[in-house]
Design a protein around this nucleic acid. Structure first.
Lengths: 359, 359
DNA sequence: GTGAAAGCGCTAACAA
DNA sequence: TTGTTAGCGCTTTCAC
């Protein structure tokens, strides 16, 4: 198949609108209209143009088009680390749904730093992307200056999975409060009393605060005594970070009945710490994570956790972004801004009541 | 900080070269030269321009620049699935090294399908990206038509971690043969006799073939008897795929001393199958994977495996691509096309000899 | 319905 | 060293 026209005898050049216009004895404008399926143009000429374009293997130059329309047809995806499989999955899904709507996706990685995240965003703004989906860093919410700039320039932002203060309307989020409530309630109902909650060092950020609310509410509703000192902040919300924290805590304090963590990633670190401390899971300590991130990998080693509907979150993020990019974009169905959590019980937690009764 | 100039009183408009030129009473061309740090321009005016650009918060429009130069300063990254942490890591690193060189990275996901991979590539070609890094699908190597198109259009391709036939010069790859050789040799030396090798159904593709070579060579060098029937092809190179295959094999055949898999992902599936079959690891069957993909997550549950230097591979991929994009790009250090594997021994394998001697 | 012309913001010849 | 001019490939008025 011929892909480009040979000029002179040297290099390849991509086929342009002009080439089609010349060949069909039409003006570039008409060809452009036809290519873009504007109805103004005569049905017959439109067909001729489209056919010719196909034959010549014409591909519109997105740079030229972007320059003329001020639309890059590209969205940005900023995340802290795609090596985290949950984020990787999100990227995959965001990419899929964006592509379906004709958008490409550019990635930037904040490596968990708010400063870096700001730079990534600024960079995307400079690049004139049409919109940006941000999977924010788990760190305190002083959105960097770039966020203000985005607002000023009218470049739509959508927050995925959490948000910064002031962006409550621009996010798709799971119902963390409910998710952790379900977990905690389940543990309390199954006879656990002392449940540690391991979160990030920044307990005021939404992703952390909302969960802690669920944790506290479950205790309150169940009428079980709880100590604020059971909530611990971890320097880094990673497996390593949680491992080190848990290791220390298990030495310093009395063994809890259960440990909950902010995410599965951390839970695997905690699991290791528990084992090294000589305790068994779930006999001595029950353990539950959040995200259901690695279960396909780990089979029966997988954790009790709360599943997030990643597919739904990704799809709604893209849809929300599109409504902002293109004000007359019509949603087929209403947007779901808060997704439902689902408690997944596996064998890192056990029913302490049954055993007591059994004994 | 003022980010754009207000026209009339309505919308924001981005600052352009023309604005700077007008303000400084210079021509656009001069400003352009100054911005691009061409030495032709007077040192003093250059400084004035740069200062003014900073003050006005000028950001070159990449679309306009791209249109004028035919360079998008963007590279594509095509992979099968970023949810695989090894791929996620690769993406992160490729992104980092690309950004360092001023390139953005656009992602596309082939979802493990050669057809989809071809579409992704074609799409990137249509978008006029400057080059593409491909983390190919583990499937037979009939590069789709898009690969030919890329060659015709002179758009550089670099293959990451494996390659298609005919692209031996365009890839950065780990020394798989050596890696598997080390594994197999180690197992043989520690008293294992029958070692199954679980690879993909496409045993002729490089990523598979090179490893099988290492496996066979180790047997040959050690002078141990081997059966070709110990090599099995798995329909999908995933945890699930390997799980199902191993489950079946362990029912049908006599228990092997050890099982090797193409990657860690598969190994975790096999681990599950082994357990379900009632065998212990490593007492009954030793197990080893490849990639060292999840060890940070799994701690003492991690596998004996072969570590790949992901950082090096990513860096070299970007460097190789840059030499192709920009023929006078100077490599500071020579390119490393084949990276060294490193055997990592953990406790999913054991020394059968010692035990025998001990007994 | 179609075409002419201007313009998106930048770069790159070539003149001055 | 700087300015003039043309052009990258497309879209978008506005006449015809």
């Amino acid at each position: 198949m011929r892909v480009a026209i040979r000029t002179g005898n040297k290099n390849m050049r991509n086929v342009t609108l002009k080439d089609i216009a010349r060949k069909l004895q039409l003006s570039e404008a008409t060809v452009s209209l036809a290519i873009n399926n504007k109805t103004i143009v005569n049905e017959d000429t439109r067909k001729r143009v489209l056919e010719c374009a196909r034959d010549m293997n014409y591909k519109p130059n997105p740079l030229a088009r972007g320059l003329a329309t001020s639309k890059s047809m590209t969205i940005g995806f900023i995340c802290s680390d795609p090596e985290n499989p949950f984020i990787g999955r999100m990227l995959k899904l965001v990419s899929r749904y964006s592509n379906q709507q004709g958008y490409s996706v550019m990635v930037a990685i904040s490596e968990g730093s708010v400063v870096q995240e700001g730079k990534c965003l600024q960079n995307f703004l400079d690049k004139r992307l049409d919109g940006v989906i941000i999977f924010p860093v788990d760190a305190p919410g002083n959105p960097s200056e770039a966020f203000v700039t985005a607002k000023e320039q009218g470049i739509p932002l959508v927050f995925c999975d959490t948000y910064y203060p002031g962006y409550e309307q621009d996010c798709i989020i799971a119902d963390y409060t409910k998710g952790v409530y379900l977990q905690t309630e389940y543990l309390l109902k199954t006879g656990h009393r002392s449940i540690w909650y391991l979160t990030t060092q920044y307990q005021e950020i939404p992703v952390s605060r909302l969960r802690i609310n669920g944790y506290k509410k479950a205790y309150a509703d169940m009428g079980t005594a709880r100590q604020d000192s059971w909530i611990f902040g971890c320097e880094k919300a990673t497996g390593q970070g949680a491992y080190q924290l848990a290791k220390r805590l298990l030495q310093e304090y009395e063994r809890p009945d259960a440990i909950l963590t902010l995410n599965d990633y951390m839970a695997y670190g905690v699991r290791q710490a528990i084992r090294e401390a000589g305790y068994r899971i779930p006999e001595d300590i029950s353990l539950a994570g959040y995200d259901d991130a690695f279960s396909e990998l780990l089979y029966e080693n997988a954790l009790t956790t709360v599943r997030q509907d990643a597919d739904l979150i990704a799809r709604e993020c893209v849809r929300l972004l599109l409504t902002k990019i293109n004000p007359d974009y019509r949603l087929e169905e209403p947007l779901i801004r808060v997704t439902e959590p689902e408690l997944v019980i596996r064998n890192t937690t056990r029913n302490r009541r049954e055993e007591r009764q059994g004994a």
